[in-house]
């Protein structure tokens, strides 16, 4: 059974607390996104999950194996792309993948097949003979992902897998992650919101080393003040805004970038009331949109809050 269980993971660097009691549980078939500003503690959490760093306290179980006491079994179950995709620049791509395969216990035809299959999936055939140090950034990242996928592990931990890639390469990597997510656990870290919306079944917002919010993108979006708000594009925004503010179901109205947004007060049906008003006033409405909430709004609020704490 595929699972990660993090129990109160805590890590200090010297006296600085980088990750503070992060706990969660994930099962197979999930893409989990760590979302947070730079310096939030995402990479440090991943380094603890992969056993590269020991926690100051707490631990993680990978498929039931404690990363502190059963390293080998835990490592066998996971593939890891460290931040920045470090590689051995002094080797050829082919030799590097052979090394990783051997270290993972693959040999002979099994290793050949595994290398052939990742090389094909990540389109690495054309650079197989090339020195890793001479690869472009996109190819380097793909080699990094290839080594993580080589043994087809049930758990993948990818630290900023699309960072520094061009839009086309980003799309490729995202498609790959989606393809893999049927049975595996894929943990990615990112500070790109659209990536979370596109890929993740579950989001953990981390700021200041602490887990601030944990849920599906929809759940997190619904915490935004935009959840249930109504956006309008109209011809006379000033007069429309003042009329809208008069409605009991509207708490306040904002005008930004050509768009009016009416926020619900919780008193009555906002959409119904606004529609009735539009009809009676005969306004020309170019756009009418009920918001489900905005991830960036929740994210900015949490990141902003923790910044003001710092």
């Amino acid at each position: 059974m595929t699972s990660i269980l993090a129990q109160s993971l805590t890590r200090c660097y010297g006296r600085m607390l980088a990750v503070d009691r992060v706990s969660f549980e994930v099962d197979g078939g999930t893409v989990l996104g760590f979302l947070g500003p730079n310096g939030a503690g995402k990479s440090t959490t991943m380094k603890m999950l992969t056993g590269y760093l020991h926690p100051t306290s707490g631990t993680a179980l990978i498929n039931g194996y404690d990363i502190r006491t059963h390293r080998r079994q835990a490592h066998q179950a996971m593939g890891y792309l460290p931040e920045g995709a470090p590689l051995y620049n002094d080797m050829r791509v082919k030799d590097f993948l052979r090394f990783v395969a051997a270290a993972r216990g693959l040999s002979g035809t099994t290793a050949k097949t595994a290398i052939g299959s990742v090389a094909e999936r990540l389109e690495l055939e054309e650079v197989a003979e090339q020195s890793i140090g001479t690869l472009s950034k996109g190819f380097g990242r793909r080699v990094g992902i290839a080594q993580a996928l080589l043994h087809d592990p049930p758990i993948l931990i990818l630290d900023e897998p699309t960072d520094g890639l061009d839009p086309i390469q980003k799309t490729q990597v995202r498609r790959l992650i989606q393809e893999m997510s049927d049975t595996k656990i894929v943990v990615i870290s990112t500070h790109i919101l659209e990536e979370v919306e596109l890929l993740c079944d579950r989001v953990m917002i981390i700021a200041q080393g602490q887990l601030q919010l944990d849920g599906t993108p929809t759940e997190i979006r619904s915490r935004s003040r935009y959840a249930g708000a109504l956006s309008l594009v109209v011809d006379q925004p000033q007069s429309v805004a003042s009329k809208l503010s008069g409605l009991p179901s509207v708490s306040n109205v904002e005008y930004r970038a050509g768009k009016l947004t009416a926020f619900p007060s919780g008193d009555g049906d906002l959409a119904g009331a606004v529609q009735a008003l539009i009809q009676s006033e005969n306004w020309v409405v170019r756009e009418f949109h009920l918001e489900s909430g905005r991830l960036d709004d929740v994210f900015a609020r949490i990141a902003g809050q923790s910044e003001s704490h710092a």
Binding site: K47, G51, Y52, E83, P86, L87, Y88, V100, A103, G105
Partner: peptide
Amino acid sequence: RSGSAELLLTLPLS
């Protein structure tokens, strides 16, 4: 320096 230690030390090797 290059960060490859992170790859090497998270392979199933002691």
